[in-house]
Design a protein around this nucleic acid. Structure first.
Length: 224
DNA sequence: GCGACAG
DNA sequence: ATCTTGTCGC
């Protein structure tokens, strides 16, 4: 899979925001998204100083067994700025995705999609760049307001931003802190939450996220 | 004006 | 994200 990053790569926050505004035109939020993805990819990045390691792990959607995995070591190329996380992680993540031998049916990202101050988080970037359906799963609140969802697995509440529903606060395990789900590209919120829940049979975070997190940390250790 | 702020 | 001890629970 060949992926074209924006050229030139933004240097400043203002340039990065301009890139987001331009890419947002490519968002597809019309269809319901994949009902039965055969494979789902999880992506994550680990850091240590200015070193980083990006990982993509493709799982069989039904069994959650690892089908393929790729890790890429690199250096931090953009400072962390809330709202511009994508520019920090995208270069290495894209490189890892390009090395996959098979294109996954869905990508689950660490972070947010539409639930973003400019309505274009990391999951939206990855969706527009790859053309694949993407979902954002955040571990902590970032933008928007919400009521506390019920305490049972599957309970959820709306994430609201300026009067719009931009995501859901979803309980993936009984009595465990909820996750923040938002759509990235080519999928609807209902379908996104359904897949996140199916990918989290035992732990708070989706198996895709857990697998990518482990691989990125291991790759970071191996590289440094 | 001040603080908060994905990973 | 990362820096970190002990501690509760299966």
């Amino acid at each position: 899979m060949k992926i074209q990053l924006s050229h030139p790569w933004p240097e400043t926050a203002a340039e990065a925001e301009a890139v987001q505004d331009a890419l947002r035109a490519g968002l597809d939020l019309a269809g319901p998204g994949p009902a039965r993805p055969a494979t789902v990819a999880g992506v994550d990045v680990a850091y240590r100083g200015d070193r980083l390691a990006a990982a993509v792990v493709v799982l069989d959607a039904a069994t959650h067994r690892i089908v393929e995995q790729v890790a890429v070591a690199g250096r931090t190329a953009f400072a962390y700025v809330p709202g511009l996380l994508a520019f920090r992680e995208l270069p290495s993540l894209v490189e890892a995705l390009e090395r996959l031998t098979a294109v996954p049916d869905l990508i689950v990202c660490d972070g947010y999609g539409l639930a973003h101050p400019r309505r274009f988080g990391l999951a939206c970037h990855l969706g527009v760049l790859t053309g694949l359906p993407t979902v954002g799963v955040g571990k902590t609140a970032f933008v928007g307001s919400h009521r506390e969802p019920g305490h049972r697995r599957g309970d959820w509440s709306e994430l609201l931003l300026d009067g719009d529903v931009v995501g859901r606060v979803l309980r993936t395990q009984d009595g465990v802190k909820p996750v923040f789900v938002s759509v990235g590209h080519r999928i609807d919120l209902d379908t996104a939450c359904r897949h996140v829940l199916a990918l989290s049979p035992r732990y708070r975070l989706p198996e895709t996220t857990r697998a990518a997190d482990r691989l990125s940390r291991a790759a970071l250790r191996a590289a440094s």
